[in-house]
Amino acid sequence: MGTYIVRRLLQMIPVVIGATFIIFVMVFALPGDPLAGKCGERPCPAAYVQKFTEEHNLNDPVPIRYVKYMGAIAKGDFGTTYQGQKVSDELLRRYPITVRLSVIAIVFELVLGVVAGVLAGIRRGKFIDNLVLVSTLVIIAIPTFVIGSVSQTLFGIKLGWVKPTVSSAATWSELMLPGMVLGAISLAYVARLTRTNLVENLRADYVRTAIAKGLTRRRTIGLHTLRNSLIPVVTFVGADFGALLGGAIITERIFNIQGVGGYIVRGITAHDGVAVVGAVTILVLVYLFMNLIVDLLYGVLDPRISHD
């Protein structure tokens, strides 16, 4: 187990370097001059240009800039944006909001998805099974931004049940609707995954034994079958949490949420490379660590899988 973790952590190093380098190169290759418009209508004074260029290492070739930049990040210094804000301050303010949003999405998809999947699985071929299968397909087929915008208009404006946009405080209650929108597609996948695994496991020998022993249906399904069927679901949700922490760009945009996704998009449109690369580096790290945890969890849940 210990050696497995160390090996995985070592494997992560080239991935982090590679992914951040690609992002770094692309961000700093974005067309546009960071100094444009910085000093109003007139061009910036030469002294300021020189100071600005030196501060952001703009004269160095890209690989050297990358090394300098990552060296600073390793020391915990995420740098300052071209506007002079500290990236770490912004990230500390925005990350809790994105985490709250993702937690709501995960809880929503896990609870509803498993319930729907179990209902469909134990009544295979019946009405409820077909209902779940068809409705999940429909959810998957409609793009998130359509679901988001329509539910915003319907529940936020027409019916007035919730506030249509999220304030900068982004409380749990404000994030309810956006969280559900964010989790909607994964909800469909969780339901289908639960159903498929449950159906498969219900035909397993140990289930027949449990029934033959005279266990009640509730106990057979609830205790024996469900526990085994949920292993792939847990790993899916774990990986999804890692993806959601970085992928809420569309939902954050629709509901005007001050999260990390919006920060990165704003950084790209403002050609503010420092902000983008800092935030993305964290995203990639979070994503990789979530995947590592999921793989470890897999071994815990299913003792047949060994990491030695």
Partner: peptide
Amino acid sequence: AIPFLLGGIL
């Protein structure tokens, strides 16, 4: 490891 939408936007 590069997030899909993010890479697309970039």
